[in-house]
């Protein structure tokens, strides 16, 4: 393999990883866990939840934008994963969605006594863009309230339930 080919491959890898980082960094997540109970949320847990919730939205956005099921694997489990897969399967008719300018204000409302489930209220703000065959059909600013259930897996928190409600 020539040095030039190696250089091109390295540059491509670098650019793709920078894009991935930029996607992830574009999702703003804040967590307030002061009211969580009955178990209190430790600082490290709080950081892990923020990190993994941000990653979940980054992955979900990527999956819905590119109609690709792969990004769902690391962040979603259970029913939410089912309906996301269903949505993406539906979109193979040429539709796609983009979630841009995302900001999530999370409040932990329940943390199980043994730490095996946490319920969050997410006030999410974003622009939802709908594309049909690459053409922008709708670009809607949204404020959506989500009830979120997350459960820990071996090395991260997984989103198990993501259910929008009119208000908390």
């Amino acid at each position: 393999m020539s040095p030039r080919t190696l250089f091109v491959m390295f540059a491509l890898l670098l650019v793709s990883s920078l894009f991935a980082y930029a996607d992830d960094a574009a999702v703003q997540v804040q967590l307030d866990s002061k009211k969580a109970g009955p178990r209190s949320v430790e600082t490290l847990t709080e950081r892990g939840i923020v990190r993994d919730y941000r990653l979940a939205w980054t992955n979900m956005s990527r999956a819905l934008e590119f109609n690709n099921l792969d990004p769902l694997d690391g962040s979603f489990i259970g029913e939410v994963k089912q309906w996301l897969r269903q949505t993406i399967t539906n979109q193979h008719s040429g539709l796609s969605q983009r979630y841009v300018e995302q900001s999530h204000k999370l409040e932990a409302v329940f943390y199980a006594p043994e730490g095996d489930a946490i319920e969050l209220h997410d006030t999410a703000q974003y622009r939802l863009q709908l594309f049909d065959a690459g053409k922008l059909v709708a670009d809607e600013p949204m404020v959506v309230h989500y009830v979120v259930l997350m459960t820990p897996s071996a090395d991260r928190w997984m989103v198990r339930q993501l259910q929008a409600v009119p208000e908390f």
Binding site: T87, I88, N90, Q91, S93, L95, Q97, L130
Partner: peptide
């Protein structure tokens, strides 16, 4: 007209 519906588990036209 064209109608689109987006929601959890649905994306149709």
């Amino acid at each position: 007209a064209t109608f689109y519906l987006l929601g959890p588990g649905v994306s149709r036209k």
